[in-house]
Every structure is written in C-alpha cells, then in structure tokens.
Design a protein around this nucleic acid. Structure first.
Lengths: 347, 347
DNA sequence: TATTAGCACTCTCATCCATAGAGTGCTAAT
DNA sequence: ATTAGCACTCTATGGATGAGAGTGCTAATA
C-alpha cells in the first residue's frame, strides 16, 4: 500500500492535470510555478525521483519530463481526485435531451449514448436495463395477407418486439386463435428467461395438443422471443475516435472502429452491471486493443425493472474528475427518465 | 474531341494499368518493357509529352513519371476499357449470398451493400426500389394494451412498415373498426404517393364522419406512411475507407466517415436512378469531399416494381474494367433475386 | 537533515547538407 | 520518325549539427 506525503500528492496531482490539459510531459521547472509551496526545482526533482521509484510516474526518454503511469492514474483516481460537480449547462443538455417524448426504451438508451458522447467528446456505450427479467405480457400473430404474418411480443415493461415472417400459406385469424389462447393461458406473466427455457421442453409437447404442426410456429415464436431477450448495446460518438487516438497509426484506428461494430466483444469489455462508478485504466481493461485507453463504467438502477449500464471510452489522459461527475449526473437523470417511462405501463 | 493513335492509346492504357496496380508514377523505361511494339524509351517519352499536352496524363513533379489525369481516366473509361467478364468465384459469392431466405426487401438490399463492399474492398451504397410507387394493400391497428398500439402498413410489394405508439387511453378493437374500414374502402390500391397527397386534404374531411377526434389517428397514419414512403439507403464497407484514402490526412478520413452517416447528402451524390452503368471520376462528382475519388453507379430494374441503385466509391485509380464487369453481374443478380421475391406476393 | 545552486549529461526536434536514383527534355545523329 | 546520349530536376534517405528542455548528481547551505 502506497502512502504519499502531502507534497508528493500535490505534485502527482499537478502532473496529472498538466499532462491531461497540455498533452506534454511535465518538467520540474513548470511545476515550481504552479505549486503552492515555495521550493526550488531541484527539490521537485528529488520528489519526482521518488514518485518514479514508486512507479507512479515515468519518463518518455532518459531526460524528459514525466507523465503519469497507469499506477499513477490509479492512485490519482483512488486517493486524490474529487468528483467535479456537474456543469449546469451540461445538466441542462442532459435534461433537455431526455425530456422529449419517446416510444421505446431503446430510443431513450440509444439517445443517451449520443448525448454523452457529445458532452464528453469521447466514445460512449449504453446498455438498456436487462430484458431477460421482463415478463411476457402479450403475444400476437397478425396475418398480413400475401403469405406474411407479423409476430408481436409485448413485455410488462412496455417493450415491444416484432418481426415479419413469410409463410407458405395465408393464415386466417381463426387458425391462429388456439395458439394465441395457449400462450395467454400458459405463458403470460412469466419472465422471458423462463419462457425461453420452456421453449426447449414443455412448450413443444403441450402445443402439440393445439396444433398439428407446431414447428413452424415455434420457429416464429422462438425467433421473436430471443430477439426480445437479447441484450442491446448502443455506441455513440464513433467519430470522436479521431479526436483522441494516435493520429499516426491508422491501423489501430481501423481496429478500434471494427471493434465498435462487434457488439458481443464490447459487451464483454463493459462487463455486467456492477456497483456505482468504476474506472478502468489502460491494461486494466481486459481487451488488448484498449490497453492505451481508459474506460469509465456506471450502472444505473431502475428498481424492479432492472439495471443498465453507461460507459465512456477515452484516452488514459482524461479529465477524470469532470467525467466522473458527469457520469453521476447522467446515471441519475437516465434512471429518473426510465422510471417515468415505466410508470406509464404499471397503470 | 480527342483522337489518339493506336500507339498512344496503348501507352495510356498501360499507364492506367500500371498506376492502378502499383500506385507509383509510371516512367518511360518501365513502359518500354511492357508494350508490345519495339521502340526506345525516348520515343515513349515523346508520345508521353503529347499525351500530357492533351491533358490526359500529368507529372507529380517536374521530372517524375506520369499518372493519369481525371481526363485521362475519362478517356480510358470511355474509349479504351473493355468490361472484364466477372470472375466465376465472385459470381458464386454473389449468388450464394443472395440465395438465402429473406423476410424483407430491405434485408436483401442491405446485404447487397455488404457483399459488394467485400468483393471490391471499397465502400458501397445501395438504394432499394423506390417505395413511393408501391400501392397500399393493407393497414392495421393492433391494440397492445398498456397504452400502446402498433400501426402496420403493408404494400402490394410485400413491404411491411410498422411503428408503435403510446396513446393516452387503451383502445379496443371495436373502436378502431370504423377507421380500418375507412382505409379499406377508400385508400387501398392507391400508390403511397397519392395517399400521402390525400392526407393533406381529402382524408381529414372524410374521416371526420367516422371519428370524433381524427387528429391523433392522422398523426399515426401519416407517420407510418411517410416512414414507408421514404427512400432507404444502405452503406457497406465503411471500414474499407481506411484502405484507399490518404493515410496521412485523418481530417479527410473523418469528414468522409461523417458524410457516410448523412443519408440525404449521399442520396444527392448518387442521384436518381438513371440508365445502365455510369462512372464519375474525381471532380465530376458533385460533392467536394469526394473530388479525389471515383464513383461507379448502376441502376437495376425490377420491372413494374421500380428501379433501385447500387454504387461503388473508391480511389480514382481503380480497376475500372473489373469493377464495371462486377457491377453488371451484380445488377442482374440483384434484379433477379428481387423479381423472385416479389413474385411471391403477386400470387 | 532537508533544501538548493550549479553543472555535466542525455535526448528530442528541426534544419541543413550530401548523395543515389529515377525520370525528363533536348539535341544531334541515324 | 526514331534513337542514343547527356544535362538537369526532383525525391527520398541518411547522417551531422545545434538549440532547447529536462534530468541526476555533487557540494554547499540553513
């Protein structure tokens, strides 16, 4: 466990701030001018040598100024940083953007990624409250004529999932009635996860009583169901990658862009909803492509409707205190908006 | 009107080919070795000087080899190039990718953009057959409970458009019946475009007889209708931008990326469906951002179901003859697949 | 014992050659 | 009309050089 003196702590803090703002290694002379105490540059140099021994700062070459190491950022985030109160203009932007009318949870969550990327000029991710805990509250099969039928699934949270299928023969409403009745009787009110599980065993057996050939229907039902139960992931500010990545390495930029299209890899990186706000720096992130960046993740809680996540990807040299303040505010506003939205469907 | 001698034409052709393949300016010595006739490099140099006077090739600096100018590519495309027969493996890839089962026109068209970008390693665009000429063949309002209703619109081409709305009070099927009957009686069979026009005048008046407060319904109907009638645009191979743009100019890359997200600007660039295959080179493209690139567009024709477009964006130094051959094949295969698909809904 | 002034040392960055290599245009000969 | 020969131009590469920024160390100081 590292403990720093008051002065060392101030020096580390100044180095982090200067480097984050200016982007250049920080030398002892410039530090003298900024620090509150009256000491010479030589003293600062001695202290810096100690911070370097502790692994908190590093040189880019033998005689350069210092920049914070991963451990340095870590210490800064854990022990020095105080979350900045969110800027009132930023708060207004958030509230205004979430204030509009939405017809879907996913619209709210997708828009959140965009707002957050706009406020931070970084890249952001949002994950909606998990659907697998939602309960099935309705299932419809609407014949559309022309060999088409639309399957619609509704959850108790007001989420609607639908899909159109092409079928060999047109169906009338009458033929579909027993199926819909079966669903109503047996499955409504169950968590989607349970329905999904039953789809493997019970349902096919029971359904055989109602339908001669249940396979076609099961395909349809299963497809809409798993679409509804799948996690959904939104990315905002892809273009911002150009602002904070290494401009001289187009290969890396391309890999990152490609990563942003792989929802599943990203979902692994962000991880499942956890506690509060978490900061992962550099190689603390499990994905090698991101080992030069930082990731701030936050879980938001919508009571019985589950938990979702928001995340910011940016450079390791990030204004952490502003970001953490912003995340806190966003977390609250988003949860509030979603509660509002859900309340509508709870009667 | 420029006319070239046989030999000049061969030289231009060789310069275009070499530069496209190697990416370096082409000098007289290397040309001597490739050209079928036995002449010295000095003769080639004299001919090259004449081609330069005609504005077909240029130097990158005073004593460099030559590269084709925009006019040079133009001449090559118009008078020299012969479309290459499509590679049989490429054809198989196309047929295989389009061979699967699709539930929507838009899926086919979106996938087309992906296949084409994969085959070319450039960026591609596809535009589906225009919807505004489709006819309305069905409209449904499905009450979902929980203050929600889904509006579904079906066209004679089997296109389905749907949207979920949040409404103040739950509706029963009975209340919706007169509205649906009205649509059935008055609007079915009309082109979407006409319906859209009537929505401004006739419909509100007539509907007033059926409903006390038609405004809410008109909003819903109008929203789904215009969503259905809007053009849809797909982009494939965004990542390929990294392969053929100037690696040293991240600003430009960023602008291009941003352009690819602006469906409307792009639609303007591609233009409305025209005749056959068209090649636009460099500043012949109306968008300034693309003045260093080439655009090949092709219109595909699905008979009475309208016309759509496919396009390839790549560097001016593109293997035009392969690309044009590929476009031709793709055009045919896509039209065939769509005709197949539509046939299903024509009974 | 903590601090500091002074100095030798290291590394980066920009600038300035020098040179090799590729290619051209021109001239005079064929 | 073609070509050999040559002077010339421009690029790309690889040192060499010097200014600037910053460090570590030593010896003196409070």
């Amino acid at each position: 466990m590292i403990t720093l003196t008051e002065r060392q702590s101030l020096i580390l803090k100044a180095i982090v701030r200067d480097y984050t703002e200016g982007g250049n290694p920080v030398g002892s002379k410039s530090l003298v001018q900024e620090l509150p105490m009256k000491v010479s540059s030589a003293t600062i140099r001695n202290e810096m040598a100690r911070l370097e021994d502790l692994g908190l700062i590093v040189k880019t070459h033998l005689s350069s100024g210092r920049i914070p190491s991963i451990r340095g950022y870590r210490y800064y985030v854990d022990h020095i940083l105080k979350p900045e109160k969110v800027d009132s203009r930023d708060l207004k932007v958030i509230q205004h953007s979430l204030g509009g009318e939405f017809h879907k949870i996913d619209e709210i969550v997708a828009q959140s990624a965009d707002i957050l990327s706009q406020l931070t000029s970084y890249t952001t991710f949002t994950l909606r409250p998990e659907l697998k805990d939602s309960r099935l509250s309705g299932f419809r099969l609407v014949p559309l004529g022309n060999h088409q039928v639309m399957a619609i699934l509704v959850t108790n949270n007001g989420d609607v999932e639908n899909q159109t299928f092409t079928i060999p023969n047109d169906l009338s409403g009458d033929e579909l009635e027993p199926v819909v009745r079966f669903i109503d009787d047996q499955l409504i009110g169950l968590p989607l996860q349970d329905v999904l599980r039953k789809l493997q065993h019970e349902i096919p057996l029971k359904l055989a009583k109602y339908l001669q050939d249940p396979d076609g229907f099961l395909d349809i039902f299963g497809s809409v169901l798993s679409k509804a139960a799948s996690e959904r992931f939104y990315v905002g500010g892809k273009l911002n990658l150009f602002n904070y990545t290494d401009q001289n390495d187009p290969k890396e930029l391309q890999s990152l862009y490609s990563l942003l299209d792989q929802t599943d890899s990203l979902a692994n990186v962000i991880g499942p909803p956890g506690q509060h706000i978490q900061v992962r720096i550099g190689n603390e992130i499990t994905n090698d492509l991101l080992k030069n960046y930082s990731l701030i993740t936050a879980t938001y809680d919508v009571d019985q409707h589950g938990k979702g996540m928001i995340a910011i990807l940016g450079p390791t040299a990030m204004p952490y205190s502003r970001m953490i303040g912003l995340m806190g505010a966003f977390q609250r506003e988003l949860a509030r908006k979603l509660l509002d939205y859900y309340r509508y469907f709870d009667e």
